[in-house]
């Protein structure tokens, strides 16, 4: 709604008008996408300020977790390290990105309350900030993935472009869930606790630490689990396999429905979010 030099705010109502204002907010956030990126970088840098390894603590702690769980579970499940370590590494890393966006989404607007209450910055800017922050974290963790793929030789068989497409699906879907969590958490302070519990539950119900083949194909826990599809779309191509076609259909449908729902909630609450805080 605002160019650099003109700001208009009205008390006009009506669904169409609110939808229009919602889209303007979205557009404005893209025009200043660099700001979201700067804020995200600042978040990452300030979190690790003063530490020797800096953001590579992300990599180190993730690497430790992958090695520990990978070696232990491979033995428990009697699986070969060659199959299991890359599987677990990618599962933990990419699930970490999903749960990061959704869990930290709860804080998106609460954390930005001082900025939201005295500037006309677009609301979406802060949603992208959370998404970018997790993308930066993921970037640090990719070091592990690359190492594992090279060490176990998967780089020869992987299908990188398809994996990138899958990653895009993952981000698009995690982003709407994160934004929905952001709005709901601003209004109801119980939501973050619920979200954290759900995500904790989800990591055990999703093939992250265990291989789906152990459950038998097409089990309901796999088929109706959105996190499973999000992971499969990235993990399968990197392991030189193909994700099922219905995984992509599931993700595309989820993105459309999810964003429509989120945007509808946003247009209804946009005026009031700043008062929730």
């Amino acid at each position: 709604m605002d160019t650099a030099t003109h700001m208009l705010r009205t008390g006009r109502r009506g669904a169409l008008f609110e939808i229009d204002m919602g889209f303007r907010d979205l557009r404005a956030s893209f025009q200043r996408i660099g700001l979201a990126w700067s804020l995200a970088w600042h978040d990452v840098v300030s979190r690790y300020r003063g530490s020797i390894l800096g953001p590579f603590w992300i990599t180190l702690s993730m690497g430790l977790m992958v090695a520990g769980i990978g070696l232990l579970n491979a033995r428990l499940f009697n699986a070969s390290l060659h199959d299991f370590i890359p599987f677990v590494a990618m599962g933990i890393v990419f699930f970490g990105a999903i749960s990061g966006i959704i869990n930290e989404g709860c804080d998106t607007f609460v954390q930005a309350s001082s900025m939201l209450s005295q500037t006309s910055l677009p609301m979406f800017t802060f949603v992208w900030r959370t998404v970018f922050r997790n993308a930066i974290n993921l970037g640090h963790n990719l070091v592990i993935i690359v190492a594992v793929l090279i060490y176990f030789g998967y780089w020869r068989t992987m299908n990188l472009p398809v994996a990138v497409l899958g990653l895009l699906f993952l981000f698009v879907n995690a982003a709407w869930a994160g934004m929905l969590a952001a709005i709901a958490s601003a209004r109801f302070r119980d939501i973050p606790q619920i979200v954290i519990s759900v995500m904790q539950f989800a990591i055990f119900m999703t093939p992250v630490f265990w291989q789906p083949s152990r459950l038998g194909a097409n089990h309901a826990i796999l088929e109706f689990n959105p996190f499973n599809h999000m992971l499969e779309a990235v993990r399968a191509p990197l392991m030189g396999e193909q994700a099922a076609p219905h995984t992509y259909a599931f993700l595309a449908l989820m993105a459309v429905i999810g964003w429509t729902l989120t945007f509808a909630v946003f247009t209804r609450t946009r005026r009031r979010i700043v008062h929730y805080l």
Binding site: D2, A4, T5, H6, M7, L8, R9, T10, G11, S114, L116, S117, Q118, T119, S120, R270, R271, V274
Partner: peptide, 22 residues
């Protein structure tokens, strides 16, 4: 500053705004 939406009426500001509120 553009942070609060009016419930009624309009606010129209031409020019770059700097708010030093907090």
């Amino acid at each position: 500053s553009g942070a609060y939406e009016p419930d009624e009426g309009t606010i129209d500001v031409h020019g770059r705004i700097a708010a030093l509120l907090d």
